[in-house]
Design a protein around this nucleic acid. Structure first.
Ligand SMILES: [Mg+2]
Length: 1044
DNA sequence: CTTCTTTTAAACAAAT
DNA sequence: CATTTGTTTAAAAGAA
């Protein structure tokens, strides 16, 4: 039933769109009569009406989609499409369709979604229309009322197809929805897509993964799950419950002559980073940032952007908006004259002329922040203002802020490579009191240790919980109000380590033995003369193939080199990492042409390599410094890369563009690794918790006192970090990431991660502070640690992060299922008094306990019954056999980042000799070219790449090497779609790039690079680098030295 | 291609 | 009634 309708509607829409396209002309102004049309209009097809409206109104412009301009918002790959589609259709699974959508990129399908929706609604449409339009009612209230009616309106916008490329229609959607005649739909859509070169619309909404064209004067934005046919929305933000079915609407206010957005949803929205409560209406300016739920997008008005683009890369001019707030909302109502009427929708011509902006709006003269943007380090100002606004006293839940790339300090944009178990171990070691740490404290601790987690979405917390419960290394030490205080099971950890080592050794021995054998065999063969080349088939595993039948030389190489191999791999890994980071850093091309970008990237890479190498040499450090740096402290590397990119940029553009990448304030970055970081975000939640009754609090307090020692220790640590933080901040106004936290930091510090519950009074105060200062939610979806959306994406998939995970593995034995056994076995002492204890716990806990427990679970959840069934099964836990790994010593044991780093460095260094390193580096340099261009030069396959013959390489021509490296760096796909130019480029690692654009390599040859380095670049390097990179290097170096 | 580890998500239960 | 906190189970991605 619905399906049929749907199909019909869709087709009609499509047609209509075509019409629109044709219509393009656009008359220009918005004439009042339009209203009439709209109101009266819409009989039958909504669509038609819409079109009419458009026509009458005149659509202003055609937007071409200069993707590059909006590179941030638009670029990227197809996969997203799939995601969207799936989300749209149904896939609840994907769950936050929103998120997945966002993450993914590219064209949208929303249209389709819309269509669906529309269909459903189509019926209702008519009446709604009437209301909408009435110009008079600008007032928000009015609007709101309308909403109540829900169903009604239907105007939809067009869907524009945007470019689309590859993604063919998603069969799924259509098939599902319109079983009736998928073909038709598909065809239509295709047709449209192809045909339309430009799109007529009043404005557009740029989402991360798609673009919505506003082609009607009223657009409803909200939530809608697939099966929900009760209402329709023009822009479907996915199933997330945090978004109301009708969360916001964008409409044209004839009175003020501009588009405005009314927030209808319960949870409000962020407009230019300012929280706007439900019921308020705010004017939309070009590039106004909007965030609803977890979905950020931007309102874009047509205009000629080209020029601007360059200058103001930054999309957000926000500040004023903030001020606007409610008051402004009111402004809407202001009577204003017709004269300006058109402005908002600046038709190219008319708009310009008319645009007298409005005095009405106070905002305008903002400082040209945008322009400064790059140069000034940007960050400071932005911070998030949200704290102020969002804090409503009411119940409304504090929405979470999603950070935008630019809002996140460079250092914290990349996910730490540590596994969660390592993260937890480090965190607990650092902050835990003997009694353990509560979950919230752990969260806070991790954020403090690794600020990355401050800015990313909260998915990681789920992983943390998962690890705590599943991994035996973590045990419940004592109970706290609601949950448990977690601690480390040192014994368990120790044992595990042992086993591992054993295994490792065994493996190593084994490997050696194997090699020996092989060697012998080969030698024999050689003698016989049977060494004819057996081409190596590529078994991927390096070792394996190496051994397998290879030439003697190869064999030899293999033998001597475990090192070599690793080195080579390291090198590849490093190059890959560097390339990826560069792509990430330069995601915003700022209008530069490909050749320029290619040039810049190439030079930047060369500079970075050169710089780091030099520094290392100076310091007399051996080993491939780049690899060491990458492993040890990627943040620094990123900074260096950023500096190099900027240096290269200004060089290439001859000063036109000084900063392609936003640099965080120098001071801020300096933070020594070893120490705790300044920013302490922390316990946001605490607030809620505090509620603890006075009694309890008092108890706690007591507890604390008793525990003093532990807490004291903690406190000290915390404070230390705090102090540093504050100092740092003070020194440099950097503002960057740190932001508001200053106050907060202190407060937090005092609390330190652990304290949450304790200090009652103090706590409250503290908590408050915390709240105001910090706001963890918000626009961050850009990056995020998580895996790609679980969309059914087929092949693709690339790994973003080059870094290797710590394979060693710390987890546990994990999976052991028979938890029961262990417990029983381990026996610890259990205590069962559980229930009693719990009750008392609060009280008793506070007092003593001391050692008391170790208890492993027991009471609470333990399901003993179950245990019975399972028998031990394979117990072997101890034995464990996993094999492989040689992993050296695992880091699990490591405590501090510093330690980790040091250890890493040592290892690296020890292996290689200086000379070799240098040579390697050089080689790398040559490799340095970064290809840019979309076409698919050719797909290189990972497999092939995987095992390049190493030993031989030396002799090999540079070219070969280059190829390898290149391949490694970027993914290639066979069929590329070209189409967009600037559009795709890179994406956040978080996004998981599935497919990377394929780059062809135009580039510079090794010689060229050398030349550049020698001549121009060098100079630049010195200049630019001195301050930033160099300083960084020094630090790094010093650390390295220390380590050594 | 299979196995093992780790990460992400979700569904649920319990406690607040 | 909404959140937290914990357990479990799946599935997907990576490394071996
Ligand atoms: Mg555990």
């Amino acid at each position: 039933m619905n399906e049929e309708l749907a199909s019909t509607v869709i087709s009609s829409h499509l047609e209509s769109e075509n019409n629109n396209l044709e219509l393009q002309v656009g008359d220009g102004h918005l004439s009042p009569h339009i209203d009439d049309e709209q109101i009266s209009g819409s009989s039958g097809n909504d669509v038609d009406d819409d079109n009419d409206d458009n026509n009458s109104v005149g659509k202003i412009d055609e937007l071409e989609l200069p993707d590059h301009d909006f590179s941030k918002l638009l670029d990227f790959d197809t996969k997203s499409d799939d995601a969207l589609l799936s989300a749209a259709n149904d896939l609840l699974n994907e769950s936050n369709g929103a998120e997945s959508n966002l993450d993914s990129q590219h064209t949208d399908l929303i249209n389709e979604e819309d269509q669906d929706v529309e269909m459903n609604d189509s019926i209702d449409a008519k009446e709604s229309t009437a209301e909408l339009v009435k110009p008079d009612k600008d007032s928000p209230q009015f609007i709101i009322n309308e909403k109540n009616n829900l169903f009604n309106r239907q105007r939809k916008d067009s869907l524009t197809p945007i470019m689309f490329q590859k993604h063919e229609l998603p069969p799924k959607n259509f098939s599902q929805l319109n079983s009736s005649d998928p073909q038709k739909n598909s065809e239509d859509s295709n047709a449209i897509i192809e045909e339309q070169p430009t799109i007529s619309a009043y404005a557009r909404l740029d989402f991360q993964s798609f673009t919505f064209y506003v082609q009607t004067l009223h657009v409803i934005i909200g939530r809608r799950s697939e099966n929900d046919f009760t209402h329709k929305v023009d822009v479907n933000l996915g199933p997330s419950k945090s978004i109301s079915r009708r969360h916001a609407q964008i409409f044209y206010n004839f009175g003020t002559g501009r588009f405005e957005l009314s927030v209808i949803g319960k949870n409000g929205a962020f407009i230019d980073d300012v929280f706007v409560e439900r019921g308020n209406t705010v004017p939309l300016r070009n590039r106004t940032k909007i965030q609803i739920g977890q979905i950020p997008f931007q309102f874009i008005l047509p205009e000629q952007e080209k020029d601007k683009i360059q200058e103001s890369t930054k999309p957000s001019p926000d500040i004023q908006t903030q001020k606007i707030k409610k008051e402004e909302t009111k402004t809407t109502k202001k009577p204003k004259k017709a004269t300006t009427s058109v402005n908002t929708t600046p038709v190219k011509k008319e708009a310009k002329s008319k645009v007298t902006v409005d005095k009405i709006v106070p905002s305008i003269p903002e400082t040209p922040i945008a322009s400064q943007t790059t140069s000034t380090t940007t960050s400071p100002k932005k911070k998030k203002q949200k704290p102020a606004a969002p804090k409503e006293k009411k119940q409304p839940k504090p929405p979470k802020k999603v950070y935008t790339l630019n809002e996140i300090p460079l250092e914290y944009r990349t996910k730490p490579t540590f596994s969660y178990s390592t993260l937890l171990t480090n965190c607990i070691r650092k902050f835990s009191t003997p009694k353990g740490m509560s979950l919230s404290e752990i969260y806070a601790g991790i954020k403090e240790l690794y600020p990355y987690y401050e800015y990313c979405p909260d998915g990681w917390q789920s992983s943390v919980r998962h690890n705590l419960s599943l991994n035996k290394s973590f045990k419940k030490v004592s109970k706290e109000g609601k949950g448990w205080l977690w601690g480390l099971d040192e014994e368990y950890i120790a044992e595990r380590e042992k086993q591992k080592q054993k295994q490792a050794e065994a493996a190593a021995a084994k490997a050696q033995a194997a090699q020996m054998k092989l060697e012998q065999q080969q030698q024999q063969r050689a003698k016989k003369g049977g060494d004819t080349v057996t081409a190596r088939k590529g078994t991927a595993s390096a070792k394996t193939n190496t051994n397998k039948g290879q030439t003697i030389s190869q064999t030899l190489a293999a033998n001597r080199s475990t090192d070599k191999k690793t080195k080579l791999n390291d090198q590849q890994r490093t190059m890959k990492y560097l390339q990826e980071q560069l792509m990430i850093l330069t995601s915003d091309r700022k209008g530069l042409s490909k050749p320029d970008i290619a040039n810049i990237l190439t030079q930047a890479l060369a500079m970075t390599i050169n710089q780091v190498t030099q520094a290392a040499k100076t310091k007399g450090i051996a080993g491939n410094p780049l690899t060491a740096l990458m492993d040890k402290n990627p943040q620094h590397l990123t900074l260096i890369l950023a500096a190099a990119v900027n240096a290269a940029t200004s060089k290439v553009t001859k000063g036109k563009v000084k900063q392609l990448v936003t640099m965080p304030p120098p001071a801020s970055m300096t933070p020594s690794v070893s120490k705790a970081k300044a920013t302490t975000p922390a316990s946001t939640e605490t607030a809620s918790k505090k509620k603890s009754t006075a009694a309890s609090s008092s108890k706690t307090a007591t507890t604390k006192a008793s525990t003093a020692k532990a807490s004291a220790a903690k406190a000290s640590v915390a404070k230390a970090s705090a102090t540093k933080a504050s100092a740092a901040k003070a020194s440099a106004a950097k503002a960057s990431a740190a932001k508001a936290s200053a106050t907060k930091v202190t407060s937090t510090k005092s609390q330190s991660p652990s304290i949450t519950k304790s200090s009652s009074t103090t706590k409250t105060a503290v908590t408050k502070t915390t709240d105001s200062s910090f706001d963890p939610s918000s626009l961050s979806r850009f990056f995020q640690p998580k895996q790609p959306a679980r969309v059914p994406t087929p092949p693709i998939a690339k790994q973003v992060v080059p870094q290797k995970r710590s394979l060693s593995g710390e987890y546990d034995d994990a999976t052991d299922d028979s938890s029961s056994e262990d417990e029983s076995t381990s026996s610890d002492d259990d205590d069962d008094e559980g229930s009693d204890k719990d009750k008392n716990s609060d009280g008793s806990t506070s007092s003593d306990d001391d050692d008391d427990d170790d208890d492993s679970d027991n009471d609470s959840s333990s399901s003993d019954s179950d245990s019975e069934e399972e028998t031990k099964e394979e117990e072997k836990k101890d034995v464990v056999g996993s094999a492989s790994g040689q992993g050296d010593n695992v880091d699990s044991g490591l405590k501090t980042n510093t330690e980790l780093m040091n250890s890493a460095v040592e290892g690296t260094i020890s292996k290689s000799s200086i000379d070799e390193n240098i040579s390697e580096v050089l080689t790398t340099d040559q490799t340095a070219k970064i290809p840019i261009s979309d076409d698919t030069s050719k797909p290189s396959i990972s497999d092939d790449i995987s095992n390049p013959s190493i030993s031989d390489d030396i002799s090999k021509p540079v070219d070969a090497i280059v190829e390898n490296s290149v391949n490694v760096g970027m993914g290639s796909e066979a069929n590329a779609d070209d189409e967009d130019d600037g559009t795709n480029i890179e994406k956040w690692q978080f996004d998981n790039h599935e497919e990377e654009p394929t780059w062809s390599l135009p580039l510079v040859t090794a010689d060229e690079i050398d030349a550049k380095l020698d001549v121009d670049v060098d100079v630049d390097m010195d200049v630019e680098v001195d301050e930033k990179s160099l300083s960084l290097d020094d630090k790094v170096m010093s650390e390295i030295n220390d380590g050594i």
